[in-house]
Design a protein around this nucleic acid. Structure first.
Length: 577
RNA sequence: GGUCCUGUGGUCUAGUCUGGAUAUGAUACUAGCCUUCUAAGCUGGGGAUCAAGGGUUCGAAUCCCUUCAGGAUCGCCA
């Protein structure tokens, strides 16, 4: 459509060779300004008159020779606004949706993408930060797959180090006679308790920290007793994670990595790099530690091996990067990790470049912001610890249940159905509230507001969907015959909604190209707003008989777009709400 | 101190990459709309010096510079 307009303008504006129409023509923000607009400023110098005058002149000229695809051209100030022929546009959009062709979206640049998330530290249960990580990861995977990228999912468990030793100490000293069952805790919560209790003990007695470090050395020396305890606690953790991840719809990873298995690898990479005199790689002359000296103030020096020959976080990441590259040869490696680790990844990618393993072009740190409570403080639960993934979801579901019980339509639901709906709504509310904002922005999560389910929320979208489904049930049409529909028949709010539906493809591609799930959630809100506006002003069943079919097609198409969009966000729909 | 991120009505947020018309919505507040397809909805109202200043441009929330505020990061921790 745009190309038709560009061609038309090229042919009918003199001296247009230097004008980049592709760039200049834009979609106006306001529907009152038509579908495409062309600003006349650049013509001003050429034609030696004011832009508004030029626009008026061009309007007169163009209105007589406008292509069929367009219904009118209007000059508004310095802009020339073109409106497309509604009948044509409604027909093409609705047919694409009706035939399910709208699901067939291919990336402009389909790639093999490896995604690493959520990579927790295994000394605690998952918390609100992981929730954001998981939602972003799940959604990104869906979007990339939907647009026909090949996706490989990986996760690394940071399962060794001082933190897990602290939890082990806590267990030994305080809870060795107890179990998750005896304390009525989820197994991963039990380990978290061991860790937290040790932390408070060690604040009183600093020698305990040294003992934890001794334990780490024993662990590294493969001391059987230590390793057995470690395995015991990790089993608890993984058991707990399994449940949480299931609730958060994390699909099985294509590959799980464990820090314990790779933490001392990567030495060879560093040693070879120094031997091969890769730029910046060297041993520190005084201490013998291995490092990369970037010789600039931004990156400075980055240590890769301690003087005693042991490895560091970075060494391990180098090894893992190489491992993945050798096995998968992906076009892109995406790390979904909090934005506080930006420096780490900048440095990592630079080092990888120098090692010839592909740098910033092949790797992407998908950074996301913090989740605070509504006052901008650390998001704590009643116990004072950071709120856990399980708690926040429970709270959302619990509140959905209350909400359902307060509505006439749903207050007498059988328990099983009530719980099923509460889960879907609570999950939707949580996921949407987190996915609806830019990933990099910090979130101040207002529980009360998220629970109110009004305005720009998941339940609003789910509710809109349920409304449509209810109408379709009552209309009781098996098939809507598109061939009988007069596509010129749609009124202004309807055309508005249809144009909105037509944006699906470009929004999905935007979300894919920019790795931006919020493009989809924002879009769904607009669609629902357009629908609800239409719904309020137009009667479908019992309205104009000759509009029934066309309206049923319209709302069915809307429901398809909503459900597909929610699906990408990992949110389920409900037929009734 | 260096580097990076963020700053948009009381609160939250879209738009910033790729400059365009009266700055997107939500929430809260306020006035209305259910004997009519689900009111978790819709309509109206008030509410913004787009952190501040300068520059570039016909045109700046958007690009450049300076400043301010908040945050992160700069370890032989992960």
């Amino acid at each position: 459509m745009k190309q038709v307009l560009i061609q038309f303008l090229k042919e009918n504006i003199s001296n247009s060779d230097n004008i980049d129409f592709e760039k200049l023509i834009e979609k106006p923000k306001s529907a009152a300004h038509g579908d495409f607009s062309f600003p006349c400023f650049l013509l001003a110098k050429e034609l030696k008159s004011a832009p508004p005058q030029i626009a008026t002149q061009l309007q007169e000229k163009f209105s007589k020779i406008l292509p069929n695809e367009f219904s009118k051209v209007v000059a508004m100030g310095p802009f020339l606004n073109f409106t497309v022929n509604a009948g044509q546009i409604t027909k093409s959009i609705l047919q694409i949706i009706e035939s399910n062709e709208f699901k067939n979206i291919k990336s402009e640049n389909p790639q093999k993408v490896l995604i690493e998330y959520p990579s927790p530290n295994t000394n605690k249960n998952l918390h609100i930060g992981h929730v954001r990580n998981i939602f972003l990861g799940n959604t990104l995977i869906n979007i990339l797959k939907f647009t026909k990228n090949e996706v490989i999912t990986t996760n690394i468990y940071n399962d060794r180090g001082i933190a897990i030793c602290k939890a082990m100490m806590g267990y030994q000293m305080l809870h060795s006679k107890e179990s998750p069952e005896s304390l009525n805790l989820k197994p991963d919560e039990f380990v978290a308790k061991c860790y937290v209790d040790f932390e408070s003990l060690s604040k009183e007695d600093e020698s305990l920290i040294e003992k934890a470090q001794e334990m780490l050395i024993k662990w590294e020396a493969n001391d059987k007793e230590t390793r057995d305890l470690w395995t015991k606690l990790l089993d608890f953790v993984y058991l707990g994670y399994k449940e949480t991840m299931q609730n958060y719809k994390v699909k099985k990873f294509d590959e799980n990595y464990y820090e314990s298995a790779i933490y001392d690898k990567g030495k060879e990479i560093v040693e070879n790099a120094i031997k091969d005199k890769v730029k910046g790689f060297k041993y520190d002359e005084e201490t013998g530690a291995a490092l990369v000296d970037f010789e600039n103030e931004i990156f400075g020096k980055k240590y890769l091996m301690r003087a005693n020959g042991t490895t560091l976080y970075m060494t391990q990441d180098l090894y893992l990067a190489k491992l993945k590259e050798e096995k998968y040869k992906a076009d892109k490696y995406v790390f979904i990790v909090g934005k506080e680790q930006k420096y780490h990844f900048d440095v990592l990618f630079e080092i990888l470049t120098r090692l010839g393993l592909g740098g910033a072009d092949k790797n992407y740190h998908f950074a996301y912001g913090y989740v605070y409570d509504k006052d901008g403080n650390k998001f704590s639960s009643r116990g004072g610890n950071i709120i856990s993934a399980d708690e926040i979801l429970d709270e959302m579901v619990e509140n959905s249940k209350k909400n359902l019980l307060s509505k006439d339509l749903t207050k007498d639901l059988p328990t099983e159905e009530l719980i099923k709906r509460a889960k879907i709504i609570g999950y939707g509310a949580l996921a949407f509230s987190i996915l609806n904002v830019n990933a990099i922005s910090d979130i101040k999560f207002d529980v009360q507001r998220a629970l109110s389910f009004e305005g720009e929320t998941g339940p609003y979208v789910q509710y809109t969907y349920a409304r449509i489904k209810s109408i379709l049930r009552k209309a009781n049409r098996e098939n809507i015959e598109t061939k009988d529909i007069n596509f010129e028949n749609y009124n202004e709010t309807e055309v508005n909604l249809i144009k909105q539906l037509g944006e699906f493809k470009s929004k999905v591609l935007e979300a894919e190209q920019k790795y931006k799930p919020s493009a989809i959630s924002n879009y769904l809100i607009r669609v629902c707003q357009s629908f609800n506006e239409f719904y309020q002003n137009n009667k479908i069943i019992g309205g104009d008989e000759d509009k029934l079919e066309s309206r049923l097609l319209l709302i069915e198409s809307t429901s398809k777009i909503i459900s597909e969009g929610l699906n990408l966000l990992g949110i389920e729909t409900l037929e009734e709400m």
